[in-house]
Write a protein that binds this DNA or RNA. Sequence first.
DNA 1: AAAACGGGGTC
DNA 2: GACCCAGTTTT
Length: 383
Amino acid sequence: MNAEEQKHYFSIHLLDWYRANKRDLPWRRSKNPYHIWVSEVMLQQTRVDTVIPYFHRFTELFPTVEALAEAPEEEVLKAWEGLGYYSRARNLQSAVREVHERYGGVVPSDKAEISSLKGVGPYTSGAILSIAYNKPEPAVDGNVMRVLSRYFVIEEDIMKPATRVKMERLAQELIPEGAAGDFNQALMELGAMVCTPRSPYCLTCPVRLGCAGREQGMEDKLPVKKKAKPPRPELRVVALIEGVGEHAGKWLIRQRPQEGLLARMWELPHAAWPEPVWGTDENSAAALCEALLTEDNVRVTLGKWFMDTEHTFSHIQWNMKVFRCRLGDEAAHPRGAGEWIPFRYRWVGPEELESYAFPNVFVRIMKAWQEVQEERETGSPGN
DNA sequence: AAAACGGGGTC
DNA sequence: GACCCAGTTTT
């Protein structure tokens, strides 16, 4: 078939296949543009199965634009806990507040207006416009680029912005009249269910007869994608600081800075440490105490090693040694007035912990700690 | 154009 | 262990 027939074949058969085979996903049951928006932001760089429970909780906690606009930021962050890329949550709330104030709570259906909202890039704007308003805008994500690169044999590096722009033009051409929302979702559904990254299910593909990549035996080589840089390793020492006296049963936690990695999340105190002293627990523990004192003006006494753990972000790998500690003299000493305070410290007990948002790595450590404590109280089973 | 920005599933 | 996921923002 010629190029035009190939495109037409693709659009028609993909759309039919989608309408007959689409998954029943929570956000597909809604026509609420705000709910669709929430789902699209959650789905950025995140799998469907991971998002589903978060989507239910989030839309229950913040069912409307107004509810999210008026919620305290900490509650929003807590609802996002564990999902990652936390700037998504803060940007979403900021954008929703703008919609609440400037657009009377109505999610804009205009390309320029919606694109100007925080956290709404080319993909998300296209997804909302097409799915919520059925406007013929492309919504090109990783799935779509994989599908198009294979079907049309596009060998440009999909990591390049120029390639995405090219894909968007192509994707827009393919949208069948009046079916933008279904078609865009069909493209992503195919990428997720059939045209998978590895070992695609070509034999059951609804558009296999028009697929140039398949015809040329290239489906395994596409899309072309430059390799990502490996994360840089970092050594970190972590303090599990248990309170005594009036703080008995509580832990000392701190809030991260306003900007940057894990912005405004809460965590166990920890410090980076240079390689030379890494290796023995004694040196690391001593290093931890000294670092917390010099960096945060928090004096802790040397503690016992508790566990080692590892946590990998996209760009950093934390290799962590965790120590049990006690606070030195009195409470934490925030720096003097007028001086920049990089972290805020606070004693919290098990119940209060529920209202603070922690990165998963610290949730893991705290759970491990609680289990050990419970074993001590009940008389340890096993070892 | 490159780096920052989480966390987890999968083969 | 490598790859990748319904990406956006900042540098």
